[in-house]
Design a protein around this nucleic acid. Sequence first.
DNA 1: CGTACACTTGAGTAGGATCAATTGAAGTGG
DNA 2: CCACTTCAATTGATCCTACTCAAGTGTACG
Lengths: 193, 193
Amino acid sequence: NPHLYTVLKGWGFRYKLLPDGRRQIVNYVMPGDLVGLQGSLMGEMQHSIEALTPMLLCVFERGELMSLYRAHPDLAYDVTWLASREESMLDENLLSVGRRSATERLAYLLAFLVTRARSAGLTGGAAEELPITQSHVADTLGLSLVHTNRTARKLAARGLLRWRDRACAVLDVDGLMRHARWERPAEGVRPFL
Amino acid sequence: NPHLYTVLKGWGFRYKLLPDGRRQIVNYVMPGDLVGLQGSLMGEMQHSIEALTPMLLCVFERGELMSLYRAHPDLAYDVTWLASREESMLDENLLSVGRRSATERLAYLLAFLVTRARSAGLTGGAAEELPITQSHVADTLGLSLVHTNRTARKLAARGLLRWRDRACAVLDVDGLMRHARWERPAEGVRPFL
DNA sequence: CGTACACTTGAGTAGGATCAATTGAAGTGG
DNA sequence: CCACTTCAATTGATCCTACTCAAGTGTACG
């Protein structure tokens, strides 16, 4: 439905499907993210969303967006900031899927998710415990489930991660970043709506 | 440099590099597009831009953006609209690179570019003549140059395209869309800044 | 003319896909 | 409480898509 939401609690993901069922997860959503902007602006969303954990959302009425832009230009600016951040995450994911090897891709994805979780305010063990299954990872990286598993096992053998209880425990973020050849950009002041 | 531009004429592309030189083209820019929004909002751009043909740009001063948001909420809305459209194009490209076969990817990319060129106001043969080389295509699709060439030859043999003069002539857009299993979403009213 | 770049083609290889089967944990219903 | 199903993770074996290496052609340009 064409509403705009702010995520207050929980994890989810955005994905697209091909007619024959192939699925591509394009990004994850977590607290502080804006969901449904495309639908609000352009009439219909070109992707679907699914929850990974129970989520708590704050609803904006679809029509309110224009009046918010008139009444609160600084909030409008923040909305655009968040859209722009989403764009740069997608750029990074595209680089990963297009040009990194399977191992690098997995390492990048996990480091990326932990970094985002921390910046979303999750602290301690909560940020390093990702509520995703290997099929989510496969459909994010553009790999088969089997190969994703083998790749994960390799990184697990090196002590970088551990899979248990349909969640992934990230043990060494810096190690993963090195594997992925990822230089995390410094995130400036980040608006929370 | 951290300015904001509107493209008036010409084609270009946005790309990212890995430390060892691997390149991923994340999207193309053409007339009517906004360039440099990330830099204006978040301080630094996480990608580079290169021109494919001579380009004519209209410059916005970087600091003006906030005052534009205060003075012209409807323009601010249009800026967000364009950012949101960029996001949905990136989603689509990610689906393509992650889940389509080489042939499907190439077919999708060409159909996508022609569709965009038309919606940017290029008419007649100009829209079907794409000013890109096969290495651009390779770095967009996440394929090697050699395999891109072989894939292109296959589609050329079926009469869907023709390569000449470091440009690609698209002969049958509908055929390409069918090959790619791409259902082009209807684009609503589109703002030009 | 010589160099550079875009495109092309052949041959051999490898990274990842597919097919198939097993284990274990978590419901679910009788 | 136990058969039955389902779903996540795992592993082996085989196949194929796409990569790498290598060489050759044509065109543009200094």
